[in-house]
Simulated assay, not measured.
Amino acid sequence: MAAPAKSFHFISGLPRSGSTLTAAILRQNPRFHAGMSSPIAALFDNLISQVSAGMEISTMVSVEQRKRLLGGLFDSYYADRGEPVVFDTNRAWTAQLPALMQLFPDSKLICLVRDLPWIMDSLERLYRANPFEHTRLFNTPAERTTVYTRVDALAGANRLVGYPWHALREACYSDFAERLVIVEYDMITQRPQDVFKLLYDFLGEARFEHDFEGLDYDASVFDAQLGLDGLHRVRPKVEPAPRETILPPDLFERFSNMAFWRDLKGSKAFRIVSQPNATEQSGQTPQAATNSLPR
């Protein structure tokens, strides 16, 4: 007897913005499976490349066959999971919306965001916490020379921070924007119960009582391969952690005012975000600013 088909949703958005935390919380629900970034997005793009124009086998694989092959990646990768709802995590999914929506027309994307200066601050802290390791985040010695070259490299249009920032902005103004909900990291840490009630409504799932003080997630083996210990480590308790930035003031200022998700005029994307004047170090509780979420 064939196993019932799974429902697929996606976690995407910006790095260091709570995607691993969100997955760790969601997986408490026995109906859900969620984890850190999976390899499916890379396999997905590589498969499309292999059957696209210019490749020898492109004329041998029809559009319908391509769809079945791509859908089969998900079925095969998650075949040993018994949960009926799977959340696949990858920052690249916001750049693959047209294909995803054809394969999974009922799927939705949870997109995590955070003010860019604090993303850069978080990555710089991890870099400095591993001073005897040349992390794979940087391609050349010149890129890792100073905090300025490191941040510039990460902000590149095809790099760790710049790529998902551009991809998310594109998705917010796409034909499928109503399938996205943008969730700000500070909202999760300060109002987790409220955020997850809204997320369940957005997903059309029955609400679940999560434990926001008993989380357990650490991908230490994966992080060791990147040379960046702690990249996917989740603290046991969901709570704010105010701090001063370690970035030079001019560098911090350069990436301020880039939170486009706080003013999405003309976009159908849903939002759970803080007011524009809320700052990570202020200690104030931001207010939710959302579109009307489906009930």
Rank of each mutant, 00 (worst) to 15 (best):
A259S: 15
A167M: 10
Y77K: 08
Y200F: 15
F87Y: 08
S38L: 07
H33A: 05
F255R: 02
F87I: 03
I48K: 13
F260L: 11
K108P: 04
D88V: 02
A23Q: 03
R207H: 14
P15M: 09
E244H: 08
M60T: 12
L251Y: 09
M258A: 07
V63R: 14
A3V: 12
A206L: 05
V183S: 04
L198V: 07
I188R: 00
K237N: 03
A95P: 03
Y148H: 14
F104M: 08
G266S: 00
D152R: 15
R136F: 04
H9R: 09
V85A: 00
N139P: 00
I188L: 08
D216Q: 10
H232W: 10
E184T: 02
D250Y: 00
E280A: 10
D223F: 05
A41I: 06
G18N: 05
L247H: 01
L199W: 06
L137T: 01
P240Q: 04
L70S: 01
Y217D: 05
R150K: 15
A157G: 09
A34E: 03
I188V: 15
A259V: 02
S76R: 12
I57C: 06
L198A: 11
V113M: 07
D80N: 15
K67M: 05
M101V: 13
A142N: 06
L198Q: 14
L70D: 01
S282K: 01
W93S: 09
S292N: 10
N291A: 14
G71D: 06
T279H: 12
G204M: 11
E178R: 14
Q96K: 11
E64R: 13
V113L: 09
F176S: 14
S292P: 09
K67S: 11
R81V: 15
F10W: 15
Q193I: 09
R144I: 13
Q96F: 04
V63W: 05
